[in-house]
Amino acid sequence: MQVITYREALNQALSEEMERDERVFLCGEEVAEYDGAYKVSQGLLKKFGPKRVIDTPISETGFTGLGIGAAMYGLRPVVEFMTWSFSLVCYDQIINNAAQVRYMSGGQFSVPIVFRGSSGGGLQVGATHSHTPENWYANVPALTVITPAFPDDAKGLLKSAIRSNNPVCFIENEKLYGYKDEVPEGEHLIPIGKGKIRRAGNDVTIISNSGSTHRALAAAKLLAEDNIDAEVIDLRTIKPLDFDLIAESVVKTNRVVIVEENKPYAGWGAQVTYEIQKLLFDHLDAPVNRITSLDVPQPYNGKLEQSVLPNEERIIAGVRETLA
């Protein structure tokens, strides 16, 4: 099997889907001639031409609205945000238009669109460029929110997202673009709304997503040296949530630690915690623990930023607290 980066996996997904369906086009800042700010779209202009790989002005509201209108007209746009932090500029288009038009029109119009781009902290780019907005968008009915952690999921989920007839927020992680792993060649679809156990274990269930899955796995490895056997679930899709997979694991381990890069207040882990206590109360031997980013804006300083993120030390401490 090919071993490629998360970035290349996304590129393959885009390329294959554009080849498969002429209605698919990519637009965003620097996606064409610059080959993508993070090189996700590398080579696509050459392959598909300027009609389908389109550099936009720095106008998130304009090109996002354009994508939504084009989707209403029957095209299948992929709109790239250089970073999801910039999607704040076009919150109105995503929420009021992409996510409401079908409902408000009584089901007359579909919005088959993928919004995608990088996200997350840890690269010292400061408070404005380090957001992890999955919880913001997951709060909106009608939006599907996907946050892949591994290259195979990045490819398989992006292909599924492009084929979905509904608006999808596809939130990549900037720190993972260079991560290499095995990825199936050619047709490879991962179902939306299904999580995956990335490490099997019996003592505690760690539920995570995106970059936090890698932190959780690293912490689990260290915990194993201490004979603590953690199961790590990568949610992959934040909304809809794969609660069945969570339940199966929690019934087995009876202890839960959630690891998320969202800030704590109303981060996605709050919803997951609610569902676990509501539906699995009798299976819990300890309160659900949440390791989130700290409730502060992202600092620039590297050491400070690492302390703000849900780092391995805090995860390990959280697991020990839950097992105590």
Binding site: T61, G65, L66, G69, M72, Y73, L75, D92, N97
Partner: peptide, 25 residues
């Protein structure tokens, strides 16, 4: 008839999307 939009000015961005679709197709 593509709506009927409640947020002032928001539909102007959808409009270029419709026109883009018309041209693309």
């Amino acid at each position: 008839f593509y709506g009927g939009h409640g947020i002032v000015g928001g539909q102007s961005a959808l409009g270029i999307g419709l026109a883009f679709g018309q041209k693309y197709l």
